[in-house]
Simulated assay, not measured.
Amino acid sequence: MSGVSDVNPIDPWLLEKLACPVTRTPLRWDAVRRALVSDAARLAFPVRDGVPVLVVREAVTV
């Protein structure tokens, strides 16, 4: 086992409402990166203490 949890720390209801701040497209949970990913922008936004950080300067390119 890799030690990576597949559990999404973001409430599914909230995840449906969140959008990429760059493209306004939906985000998806990536358990490996432990981040919310915008496939359209190719950015991964961190989640800290269960709170999504949707700030472009905090994102990493995927």
Rank of each mutant, 00 (worst) to 15 (best):
V55F: 04
V56A: 01
M1F: 13
L15H: 03
A40W: 06
P21G: 07
P46T: 01
V53H: 08
V56L: 01
P9C: 13
P21C: 05
P26I: 11
R57P: 05
P52W: 05
V53S: 06
R24T: 12
V22T: 06
V47K: 10
A19M: 11
M1G: 15
N8I: 14
V32D: 11
V22W: 02
A40M: 09
R48S: 09
A31R: 09
L18P: 01
V7C: 07
S5W: 07
T61Q: 11
R28S: 10
R42N: 15
V62D: 09
P12I: 05
V4Y: 09
G3D: 09
R57A: 10
L43N: 01
T61K: 12
S2N: 14
C20I: 00
E58K: 12
A41F: 08
R24Q: 13
P52N: 05
R34K: 14
C20S: 00
A59I: 01
R57I: 12
V53D: 03
R57N: 14
T61V: 15
P21Y: 06
K17Y: 06
L43F: 08
V47M: 08
A44R: 03
W13H: 13
L15Q: 03
P52I: 07
A59V: 00
L36M: 10
E58Y: 11
D49T: 06
L36T: 04
W13R: 13
R34G: 08
G3L: 13
V22R: 00
C20G: 04
C20Y: 00
R48C: 10
L54S: 03
T61N: 10
N8T: 04
A59N: 00
V37P: 07
L15V: 05
V56K: 03
V56N: 00
F45P: 02
W29Q: 07
L54N: 02
F45I: 03
R48K: 15
L18I: 02
R48T: 12
P9T: 07
V32N: 14
R33M: 14
S38G: 03
V60G: 03
V55E: 09
A44K: 02
V47W: 05
P9Q: 05
R42Q: 15
A31L: 05
V51N: 09
W29P: 05
A31F: 12
E58N: 08
A40H: 13
V53C: 12
T61S: 10
V22Q: 01
V4I: 08
C20Q: 01
W13Y: 10
P46N: 06
L18S: 08
A35L: 08
D39P: 03
L36N: 02
S5K: 07
L14C: 02
C20T: 00
M1Q: 11
